[in-house]
Structure formats: structure tokens, C-alpha cells
Simulated scan of single mutants.
Amino acid sequence: MVNPKATTTSERSRDVLVRALRSEVDLTVEYTRRRGHAVSLARQAAEAGVELVVTLGGDGTVNEAVNGLMTATPPTVDLPRGPAERLPALAVVPGGSTNVFARALGLPREWPDGTSMILEGLRLGRFRTIGLGRADDRYFTFCAGLGLDAAVIREVERARLRGRVSTPGLYLRSAVSHYFVGADRRHPAIRLERPGEPAEAELATVIIQNTAPWTYLGKRAVNPNPEASFDLGLDVMGLRQLHVPSTTRTVTQLLSGSPNPRGRQVLRLHDQTEFTVVASRPQAFQLDGDYLGERQKVRFASVPHALRVIC
């Protein structure tokens, strides 16, 4: 499954990748043609009994493929198997600008090295079973967010539509601009509710992680919840206020060599099974780095042992 608009590959490099994979597996190539197309392609592959789905693209393509797999009805099998074993395995060739999911799996940043590692994994039968996150009815692989981070992604996507190239500098400029101009820093609107626990109210922004790191700025990992893992539940970091001193301190902690954000304005929750985020006014919402509009209520859940991946 190839995203022809993948930012770090060319038509020639995609041809090289296809030939390399065809040397190891019986391969059918499908190109995504619009947003959401990878969902239907992956679902069709799973329901046709395909054993492996390979994506070439960024984190958005991976997210769509995962949602297609997780919502498929694969052919019935006689032997009892777990949910992950009934679905095709997933192999991810990094082709986007950031490739957080692939890098969190330990794959190299560049697609030629990533392809070599995947081919080796196929030959050796090397895979792992990972957990996913779910936000209402949509799955995510590494992160979600309501508030500031999602609003920054919205601004970056608008800039890309105007022809700007996605770079760490663009994200930083968009974050600073939105923080000082677009954010309502005086009136925190978000509340986090957990079964059997007091609500955490008056949060200005919430970041949810299914693994670490949350994202990258170039080669630098940004890690609000460094203990987050594919093998555990969801981790949360929320900021109660967006005052300049406390926010500056938290950002400095995030970018340090040993990130461990803390302070009176920081909420940290580890290994959570389920929770609901409720806002008094619409908040920007993102999954796996894709802006999905505004929401006022999202139920999050951890989905353990959900998917097999080649790594």
C-alpha cells in the first residue's frame, strides 16, 4: 500500500522498494488516491485473507491502514486464535516527514534502511504484538491530543495546503504563534474523567500516548510520558494552565536529555485502561499527528495485544 505523495520517496525509490519486496513475498501494489483510501484498502486486504500488509508513507497512512485492519472481518478459521493472529501482520516502510510509529518500533529513519530491516524480519519471521489506543471508534498507534498540540497540527496542515514544507521549524513557529495569539490561556476548558476516580478538572491541554516518544523534532525525541509503551495502557500528560513561566519550564523539561515533566501545573497518568476527556467548549483534536476537527467529548481506551507488526 503506497502513498504516492509520501514526502521522502520518489517514483524511482518506490520502484526499488517494490522489487525488493517482490523478491520475498507475492506482492500486490495499491496506491492511495485520497484521504481515507488506505482504510478501505487495508480492510479489503484483511477480508480477502492477505497475510501481510505493507505501507509506504507517513504516520497518517499507517493510521488509516491500522483502522482498516482493526475494523475488518477476516475469513473464518478453524483453529482458535487471538484477535491479532486473525488479522494480517503490518510492516511499515517510513516514507513521511516524521515517521513516529516506525521509529518507535525501532526501525531506521530512512526508507532504504527500514526496507532492509523489514525484509530481514520477514525472512526470520520476526514480529511483535502491540497494543493500540482507541478514541471513540477510531484507533491510534502512538498519540492523541486535545487542545494546544492538536491546534498546532491544524495550523501546520493549513500551511502545507498553502505550499509550505513540513519541517521542525514550521511546527515550532506554529506552536509559538498559536500559544501567544490563538490559545485561550485564561480559561482551561478540559476535564478528564476516570471510572472510580475524582475528575481532573480545569486542564488547558491533554496529550495521550500509546508509546514513547510522543513525536520528534528532527532527530530529537519529544517525550512527555517516557514510560509509555506498546505493552501497557495509555499514558497522559495534561497542563492545568498555559502561563508563560510554567509552560516554558515544562517545554524545557520535555526537550531535556532525561525528560520527566513535573510541577503543580502538570498532570501525569500512567498505564490507563480507559478514561473520557470532556471540554466545555470545542477543542482541536488529533490522532497520530492528523488533525480531525474539533471535539467536546472523546472516550479513550487501551486495546492490548491488538496487532502484529514486522520489526
Results as ranks from 00 to 15, higher is better:
A48I: 00
A48G: 09
A48C: 10
G49S: 08
G49L: 04
V50M: 09
L52C: 07
L52S: 04
V53A: 02
V53Q: 01
L56D: 02
L56V: 15
L56C: 13
G57Q: 10
G57S: 07
G58N: 07
G58D: 08
G60C: 12
G60L: 09
G60P: 05
G60Y: 07
G60V: 03
G60D: 10
T61M: 12
T61S: 14
V62F: 06
V62N: 04
N63R: 13
E64H: 11
A65D: 00
A65C: 11
A65F: 05
V66F: 08
V66A: 06
N67V: 12
G68D: 04
G68R: 01
G68I: 07
L69W: 09
L69Q: 06
L69G: 05
L69D: 03
M70E: 09
M70V: 07
T71I: 00
A72L: 05
A72D: 08
T73M: 08
T73P: 04
T73L: 10
T73E: 15
P75G: 02
T76N: 05
T76C: 03
T76A: 14
D78W: 11
D78R: 15
D78F: 05
D78I: 11
L79M: 10
P80G: 02
R81K: 14
R81L: 15
R81G: 06
R81T: 13
R81W: 02
G82M: 04
P83D: 00
P83H: 04
A84C: 03
R86G: 07
L87Q: 09
P88S: 09
A89W: 08
A89I: 01
L90D: 04
A91M: 04
A91L: 09
A91P: 03
V92F: 00
V92H: 06
V93E: 02
P94F: 03
G95P: 06
G95L: 05
G96S: 14
G96Q: 10
S97M: 08
T98M: 09
N99I: 02
N99H: 05
N99S: 02
N99L: 06
V100T: 15
F101V: 07
F101N: 02
R103M: 09
A104F: 00
A104L: 03
A104P: 06
L105E: 07
L105I: 06
L105D: 05
G106Y: 12
G106H: 11
L107V: 03
L107Q: 09
L107K: 02
L107M: 13
L107D: 07
L107Y: 05
P108E: 04
R109Q: 12
E110N: 13
E110W: 00
E110K: 05
W111N: 00
P112Y: 03
P112I: 00
P112W: 00
D113L: 12
D113R: 12
G114I: 01
G114E: 03
G114C: 06
G114A: 07
T115F: 01
